[in-house]
Simulated assay, not measured.
Amino acid sequence: MRPYHNIEIVECGERFIEIPLQDFAVESPHPYEKLGAPYGEHSPYFARESVVNYLFEAQKYLQQIRPDWRIQIFDAYRPVAVQKFMVNYTFSQAVREKGLRELTLSEAQKQSIWEEVYKIWAEPSLNKKTPPPHSTGAAVDVTLVDEMGQIVHMGSSIDELSERSLPDYYIDIQIEQAPRYHANRLLLKDVMEKAGFTRNPKEWWHFSFGDQMWAWLKNEANLDNKCIACYGRLF
């Protein structure tokens, strides 16, 4: 259970639509599709209608500051089957990076690695009261591209299993590029939040509107709020 799982969901039935990819930057083919993730009928580039509208708003705010920059949509809709696929893939990758073999892991090693994985990845829950954020059509993973079409440096890759994924990691890090990385993350945060999104406190790239995490963060920021989630799991 995450803290936001205590938030009530009252599904509003808003449309689930395709994001107009010609208006944003994207990586093609999609990174998870390349790995074989089982998306089924809908591609990763679907979201709730309000989420799509707010992405346009965020890009408008971005281009008022950086006229030729664009938002790059790394990921949006993710069915629970894909969530499970990626959680298992990330676990296997972490095992390999540590020079270990899954068949010979001790219980303590398994537990430690799973804890690392779940710092980034939501549990692939089929419980309608605890849906992974991306399975609701509410969440997007995004970054920025500059006027040359190059991805703006943020100091870590999306989905990285390290402390560098924390949004404010570079505030007190004493390396030459730290101020630039932090400024780029703040720019992304500012334009997304101005449009109506909230940012995952543990991931610089993850933003959502209308799901349990969004409502929980709104309530935490203002104890007088009584926000509930308006998007539940799709399909």
Score class of each variant (00 low, 15 high):
His30Gly: 01
Asp190Met: 07
Pro167Leu: 10
Asn219Ala: 04
Tyr39Val: 05
Ala229Cys: 06
Glu147Ala: 09
Leu187Asn: 02
Phe209Lys: 15
Leu234Cys: 12
Gln59Phe: 01
Ser162Gln: 13
Gln177Pro: 01
Leu105Gln: 13
Leu100His: 13
Ala138Asn: 09
Trp214His: 15
Ile73Val: 04
Leu186Pro: 00
Leu166Thr: 05
Asp168Ser: 13
Ser106Trp: 13
Glu193Trp: 04
Gln64Arg: 06
Pro44Asp: 12
Glu57Ser: 14
Glu11Gly: 05
Arg199Val: 01
Ala76Leu: 03
Ala221Gln: 12
Lys60Asn: 09
Arg48Gly: 01
Lys129Cys: 04
Arg70Ile: 00
Arg70Glu: 01
Thr143Cys: 14
Ala195Trp: 00
Ile113Gly: 12
Asp190Phe: 05
Ile173Ser: 08
Ser50Ala: 11
Glu115Gly: 12
Gly13His: 09
Gln109Val: 11
Asn53Gln: 11
Thr104Ile: 13
Asp23Gln: 15
Glu123Ile: 12
Glu107Ala: 15
Met148Trp: 10
Met1Ile: 11
Ser43His: 02
Met154Ala: 04
Lys84Met: 11
Asp141Arg: 03
Arg180His: 03
Thr143Ala: 09
Lys226Ser: 12
Tyr4Gly: 08
Gly210Pro: 09
Tyr54Gln: 14
Asn88Trp: 08
Val87Phe: 10
Pro44Val: 12
Ser50Glu: 10
Phe74Gln: 10
Ser157Tyr: 10
Glu33Asn: 08
Thr143His: 07
Leu126Ala: 07
Ala47Thr: 02
Ala215Phe: 01
Glu18His: 11
Ser43Asn: 05
Cys227Met: 11
Glu18Met: 10
Gly196Met: 02
Pro201Gly: 01
Lys226Gln: 15
Ile17Trp: 14
Glu11Lys: 04
Ala94Leu: 15
Tyr45His: 08
Val10Met: 08
Ile120Glu: 09
Ile7Val: 10
Thr90Val: 12
Leu234Ala: 10
Thr104Trp: 13
Ala221Met: 10
Ala195Ser: 04
Pro179His: 04
Ala122Leu: 03
Tyr170Glu: 03
Arg15Val: 06
Ile65Phe: 07
Gln22Asn: 14
Val117Thr: 10
Tyr61Asp: 08
Leu217Arg: 09
Phe197Gln: 08
Glu97Arg: 15
Arg185Asp: 02
Ala229Gln: 07
Lys60Arg: 14
Phe209Met: 07
Ala183Cys: 04
Pro31Phe: 15
Trp69Lys: 04
Phe16Asn: 03
Asp172Met: 03
Glu102Phe: 10
Gln174Leu: 06
Met1Gln: 09
Ala229His: 02
Asp159Phe: 14
Glu8Asn: 09
Trp114Ile: 11
Pro167Lys: 06
Gln150Lys: 08
Pro29Cys: 13
Asn219Lys: 04
Thr198Glu: 14
Leu166Gly: 02
Leu234Asn: 14
Pro38Lys: 01
Leu161Arg: 13
Arg48Phe: 02
Ala215Ser: 11
Glu8Pro: 00
Leu21Gly: 00
Thr198Ala: 05
Leu103His: 11
Asp75Ile: 04
Gly149Gln: 07
Trp216Gly: 09
His30Ile: 06
Ile158Asp: 08
Glu193Phe: 03
Pro131Asn: 06
Ile73Met: 01
Ile158Lys: 06
Tyr4Ala: 12
Ser92Lys: 15
Asp23Pro: 00
Val10Ser: 14
Val191Ala: 01
Val87Ala: 15
Tyr231Cys: 13
